[in-house]
């Protein structure tokens, strides 16, 4: 069963951003959504995850065939969805381990005592999820994202995804602001998730991640509409001639209005 956005029209900050987007993330695939800045990529991620900053005017979101359009974000998480933020906010006072334990408990339906450690192996799970993304144990006891560099934030998002064990992962520009090593880590984790049967919606501006992980399909978003769909040949075209040339060839307008 897939994750589906169906005919989505949405506004953010008082502006119409998405003008009828339909896409389907199938089980076990990596679907890349590419597009120039301002095309609506982050709004699309937010609307699927249920952010209150986006108001959905038309369309539906379905998880495994269930209409979740009216459900709050946390309920979508319980159904297997997770959004990794492009720039996650600093959460003062809350340690990364606290957030991980709380969300781990929620995901497993143990909400009666949010912070109770029922499974002692949770600590080794947390440590190994950090080590996979190249962060040391000490990050468990730091406040979430507080004083983290851009790259550390991205890595922490990925580590949380491994703890939460979602079925559908939306990654909003996981490659922005990363160095070569960081890019390799992100690529490896996406490959690993795919191997584990997870589905990844990879939102990105660039094709540079594709050398480590090849998306199964690519959709291109411009001015709030999906304007092209296909395989790696689209990535190659974007790399070769850029978004404006692509827009020209497709006969659509680029964004930035």
């Amino acid at each position: 069963m897939p994750l589906v956005a169906e005919g989505v029209e949405a506004e953010a900050g008082g502006k119409v951003i998405l003008k009828g987007v339909t896409l389907e993330l199938r089980e076990g695939e990596v679907l890349a959504v590419m597009g120039p800045n301002g095309s609506g990529k982050t709004t699309l991620a937010n609307v699927i995850a249920g952010s209150p900053s986006v108001s959905l005017k038309k369309g539906r979101i379905l998880i495994d065939g269930e209409d979740v359009t009216e459900l709050p974000p946390e309920e979508r998480v319980l159904r297997g969805l997770m959004l990794l933020f492009q720039s996650p906010p600093e959460i003062k006072g809350v340690k990364l381990s606290t957030l991980m334990i709380a969300s781990f408990n929620k995901r497993r339906g143990l909400s009666s005592d949010l912070l109770k450690v029922t499974d002692p192996s949770i600590f080794s799970k947390m440590r190994s999820s950090l080590s996979v993304v190249g962060l040391s144990d000490e990050y468990l006891y730091r406040e979430v994202n507080v004083g983290f560099s851009g790259g550390e934030k991205k890595r922490s998002e990925l580590a949380q995804a491994m703890m939460l064990d979602p079925k559908y992962v939306i990654m909003d520009e996981p490659d922005s602001g990363l160095d070569i090593d960081g890019l390799r880590v992100v690529g490896e984790i996406i490959s690993r998730m795919k191997r584990e049967g997870k589905s990844v919606l990879l939102i990105t501006h660039y094709t540079r991640l594709f050398s480590t992980v090849k998306p199964d399909r690519i959709s291109v978003l411009m001015r709030g509409r999906i304007v092209a769909q296909g395989g790696m040949e689209i990535a190659e075209e974007i790399d070769r001639s850029g978004y404006s040339k692509l827009a020209e060839r497709l006969g659509v307008e680029l964004n930035n209005d």
């Binding site: 709050p72 998480v77 006072g93």
Partner: peptide, 28 residues
């Protein structure tokens, strides 16, 4: 802010749970 709350909610916590974690962290 709403952004903080949405972030915590995107990890599976309700708004109330998110607030209580942040308040407890504040008092730690």
């Amino acid at each position: 802010s709403e952004e903080h709350l949405f972030y915590m909610r995107s990890r599976g916590l309700t708004e109330g749970e998110a607030k209580s974690l942040m308040v407890l962290g504040f008092l730690e």
